[in-house]
Design a protein around this nucleic acid. Structure first.
Length: 575
DNA sequence: GCCGTTTTCGGCCCGACTGTTTTCAGTCG
């Protein structure tokens, strides 16, 4: 059982307990544990094998949950969940996914009307049964029917690029509204999470009406779901939902801090405030009735004795403790990026020539790049065999000689084949300036085989970096990461001087933030690459930088944030 | 179910909006 599977078990226990009306803090404990385990950089199985007591040392895991993890690891199941499933029919928990439905309503529909799944729910709404139930009414029944229509997409997360585009568009529109002063995206978009559930935008205004009217009539908005004095919720075209909050200027910082989250980070800041005899809400920091801070986020953090914490770090992953000790990182910036080391040309599946890619890179101020077309295994992209690759490199040599302000490396994105050999012979790889080793095929192979393949690449003396390591895909058709022992892979990479890529494409962002942090802790240089297939492909670098910031990386941790001469000394061929 | 520099018991973040109610419960973030 891996962490994801254990996490799902606790998540389901939480849902079922909640429907049963269990103590909400108990429910929260299961949900917190599910999240903690799902996010944990090390496998519970490994921790347990090393020392069973380690589980209890994880914050949010006590004696009871540690014992349950042990049971799951040993028997692949949890008797408590088996029992809960007998008590709560399988389709009932699905009702929780409907917007506006929580545990109380779900339990009422199940117990009072005998509704067991979403189909029965739909029928009961249409027949008027739901509207007649105590505590329900016409509007609730209608809202449930609407919610049912959106249930598939409501739980769906969208990639950061799409979410940021929508959020920026609305922010830009609100900025033009007379009487609106400050406008900012908040929520997980501001924290630069790799996928986004819904959007938050915050404004300060003399009067909320104009801002809300602007949003309500914006061409991207499909429907206004709720509107009050200070808060409006809308559904955008494409299915995402957005909250707009209007606050007074003196509360802007407190509101921005509050609505940026994460929820877990806010619980920690509020708890800290309470310990200091203060109270934080979205209007400010209060001692008794008196507001002592709130105009800026800096003020809010200062009031609880902390320096400003960048949004990307606000996940309750130790940032509060680091802030307290004054050891917060000075996060990488987009402007730090000096080079880009993963891109394609018309030689394989890119749309621009070598020269066009070099020119586009220069326009963006890059000082060095690597041209890394596909190797032959990727036949659908017209991947290069040894002969074509050597000819391609010759062409690069001729063209790069024309430029004095940018270094151009002759690279290759070489597949690690299903049988754990490299797609190109060693003597060819030896001639490259830069070799990215990647898994494209056979991602569903068993863990042992995936590990064998990765070890082949890591031990190969010519491999510079592992590209999009896990092969996961976050797009409309998500693809799970390949099975691997990440800790072991990173350790081997560290031992052999192989770098790790953060692929900046918004559907990849692979390796992820926690993985990048783990690599950094092992002293592995991180490379952030766009994997550009066109001249516009360079523009996704920002998303790679966001992911690096979430990992807490500084410029010194990122190989291609270094000056060319420094970067050159990091190249494996120089060792 | 977790947790502890006032605590091993008694807390656990906090406010807005909606709908169904006549003063509030449920849901959400």
């Amino acid at each position: 059982m891996n962490n994801t599977e254990i996490s799902r078990i606790f998540e389901e226990v939480g849902d079922l307990l909640e429907i049963q009306g269990a103590n909400s803090f108990r429910v929260r404990a299961y949900r917190m544990a599910a999240r903690t385990i799902g996010d944990h950089p090390e496998q519970m199985a490994d921790l347990f094998a090393a020392n069973p007591r380690q589980l209890e040392e994880i914050s949010g895991i006590g004696k009871d949950l540690a014992a349950k993890i042990k049971t799951i690891l040993e028997t692949s199941e949890l008797p408590q969940l088996t029992e809960l499933r007998l008590e709560v029919p399988a389709g009932v928990a699905d009702m929780l996914r409907i917007d506006g439905m929580g545990p109380k309503k779900t339990a009422a529909l199940w117990k009072e009307l005998g509704i067991l799944d979403l189909d029965m729910l739909k029928a009961a709404c249409e027949s008027g049964q739901v509207a007649g139930l105590k505590g329900f009414g016409e509007k609730t029944a209608k809202k449930i029917l609407e919610g049912l229509a959106h249930v598939a997409e409501s739980g769906m997360r969208h990639d950061l690029a799409e979410a940021k585009f929508l959020s920026d568009s609305i922010v830009d529109a609100l900025q033009l509204v007379p009487g609106v002063h400050q406008v900012s995206a908040a929520g997980s978009v501001r924290r630069r999470k790799e996928t986004i559930g819904d959007l938050d935008v915050l404004v300060t205004a003399d009067d909320s009406t104009a801002a809300m009217d602007c949003l309500g009539t914006h061409p991207l908005v499909e429907k206004v779901l709720a509107r009050g004095e200070t808060k409006q919720r809308v559904r955008l075209r494409g299915g995402m939902e957005m909250d707009l909050r209007v606050v007074p200027a003196e509360s802007y910082g407190a509101a921005l801090q509050y609505f940026t989250g994460s929820k877990e980070h806010n619980i920690m800041t509020r708890r800290r405030a309470a310990e200091m005899g203060l109270k934080i809400n979205e209007y400010g920091v209060f001692r008794g009735e008196t507001s002592i801070a709130g105009r800026t986020e800096e003020e809010v953090y200062q009031a609880i004795g902390l320096p400003y914490i960048p949004p990307e770090l606000r996940e309750d992953r130790g940032e509060i403790q680091r802030a307290e000790k004054g050891t917060l990182p000075k996060l990488l910036e987009l402007a730090d990026m000096q080079g880009d080391l993963h891109m394609h040309t018309t030689a394989t599946d890119g749309t621009a020539s070598i020269r066009e890619m070099i020119d586009a890179a220069r326009q963006r101020g890059l000082k060095y790049i690597a041209i890394t077309d596909h190797s032959k295994r990727v036949s659908m992209a017209n991947g290069l065999d040894a002969d074509r690759l050597r000819a391609h490199w010759k062409e690069i040599e001729v063209i790069r000689a024309e430029y004095t302000d940018i270094q151009v490396l002759r690279g290759i994105e070489c597949d690690i084949l299903e049988d754990a050999t490299m797609d190109l012979p060693d003597d060819v790889l030896a001639e490259a300036d830069w070799v990215i080793a990647v898994l494209h095929y056979g991602l569903k192979q068993p863990k042992d085989q995936i590990m064998a393949r990765l070890m082949t690449a890591i031990r190969n003396p010519h491999v510079s970096v592992l590209g999009h390591l896990t092969g996961r895909y976050l797009g409309k058709r998500p693809r799970a990461p390949a099975a691997m022992d990440l800790k072991e892979v990173l350790k081997a990479a560290a031992d052999h001087g192989v770098m790790i890529e953060i692929n900046a494409h918004p559907s990849r962002l692979d390796i992820d933030d926690l993985g990048a942090a783990a690599a950094r802790d092992l002293g592995i240089p991180i490379v952030i690459s766009t994997d550009a297939h066109a001249t516009t492909g360079f523009d996704v670098m920002q998303f790679g930088v966001f992911q690096a910031r979430r990992a807490g990386l500084e410029a010194r941790h990122v190989a291609n944030a270094q000056e060319w001469t420094t970067f050159k000394s990091l190249l494996r061929s120089n060792r």
